[in-house]
Design a protein around this nucleic acid. Structure first.
Lengths: 240, 240
DNA sequence: TGCTACAGACCGCCAGTCGGTATAACTGAC
DNA sequence: GTCAGTTATACCGACTGGCGGTCTGTAGCA
């Protein structure tokens, strides 16, 4: 086979990109190392030259995601003109504008699928460790401004983040919904759920009811409209 | 090899029991089907006579756990003498008495270990579908009694259950703590966390602060005291 | 000339398959 | 009631394909 040499950073990025695609599409376990190197056009030996194990590749992918999330956050935190409450809402809605609904539903569809628990968990854990302290800073600011209450900003931050990550079931329902009736029902259920989650955040942080909102209005409907094409036999996503 | 025939129900139970032990001890992926049948003294063919796949065995195990949880709940729900608030606390503390601390820490240690995400997730999901409606009934009762507030008892129930399942990190810290100082710090952190989670539940359900409590006093210390013996090299549970 | 980035045959293990079989349970003849 | 014949059930274990990971190299750039 022709031997093609690239800059290590480029190769590493290629592997991460291919792994990201394949893990999302097929699930972490179902996507083999051979699949990944096949996509990049690399040998087994070269792969293990870059990553000590398949798990390390997953870890690197999670770190990458966390790093990107952190970068997105810096922008919010760096804006001193915003009140803590405004920052909170900006935080909760990051990447959840109606314009990014298609992107969001695609991500959800792959990451919340049953065969992707491992991928989801890794991402979540790693991103969480980056996000929690950032959100805690917002909560502390809110406390100083007198708009928020919390005994322990870091713990409160983790609880709030947790509430943001419970969308699993509702997303699955949204993806599985067949027919206009079921779809509009799923949308309504999803929005009720998001409203309740927002309320829970308000209560935990001592904000007036209706202050925190996880998505901007119309986001769920936009996501539903942008659902990835499902196979004609139905049940793309197994129930449960 | 001698051929030993048993009643199918007995064999099935044997397999479930062995799988429960091995999955907990080594993790779902690390415990092979060969390990399980080795423990039971059965052949590969016989195993696949009972379960169509290793995953189906995990599913059956999760169902079993859910069924047991449901049975435990019936007792609480069947007691009409208890107020909804009392039922809530009984619910939150099920299996969390100081007398059951040893059992609890052992369960946590295995189920929250990094290599057991799959096992944890399955159990959690299955048990959740059983628990959420039960807790929702308690919340409805509380609403009728005027002690609780909720727009949607089922969603509130799911949020409350979720809050009960966030103990991961703190448990890991508790298990990893080396030396008296670190241990007492981990205990304190755990208790602060549980207190905050209790507060969050209070707020979500419109209860006075300090009403809901996830464990009885002294439970965390009792758990810490009952930690399973860790290997002398330290770091039984990998960080994170 | 030496080190870095690569190649690919190879290994052990694992979930799952398959053809076969011992044994218990049932049948009917006497 | 018992005993050969038959069937269905519960079981055996060699085998397969594919997986993650290893190892011995080696081409190509510096």
């Amino acid at each position: 086979m022709p031997r093609i040499v690239r800059h290590p950073e480029v190769r590493r990025a290629e592997l991460l990109a291919a792994a990201g695609r394949l893990f999302s599409a097929r699930g972490y376990e179902a996507a083999s190392v051979d699949d990944i190197i096949g996509e990049v056009g690399l040998s087994k030996g070269a792969f293990y030259y870059y990553f000590p194990s398949k798990d390390a590749l997953l870890e690197a992918l999670a770190r990458q995601a966390a790093e990107r999330a952190r970068a997105e956050l810096e922008a919010i935190l760096a804006a001193p003109a915003m009140s803590a409450v405004e920052q909170l809402n900006a935080f909760l809605r990051r990447g959840r504008g109606t314009d990014r609904a298609a992107e969001a539903i695609a991500t959800f569809a792959s990451i919340f699928s049953p065969e992707n628990i491992v991928l989801y968990h890794r991402m979540h854990r790693t991103v969480m460790t980056v996000m929690a302290p950032a959100l805690a800073r917002i909560i502390e600011k809110g406390r100083r401004e007198g708009s928020m209450a919390s005994n322990d900003p870091l713990i409160s931050a983790e609880l709030v983040l947790l509430l943001g990550a419970v969308t699993h079931g509702a997303v699955a329902d949204l993806l599985a919904a067949e027919g206009a009736d079921a779809l509009s029902q799923a949308i309504a259920a999803f929005e009720r759920r998001l409203a309740e989650q927002g309320l829970a955040v308000d209560r935990i942080l001592g904000l007036p009811d209706g202050t925190a909102r996880f998505v901007e209005p119309g986001f769920v409907a936009a996501m539903a409209a942008a659902r990835p094409n499902r196979n004609p036999l139905g049940a793309t996503v197994a129930a449960g």
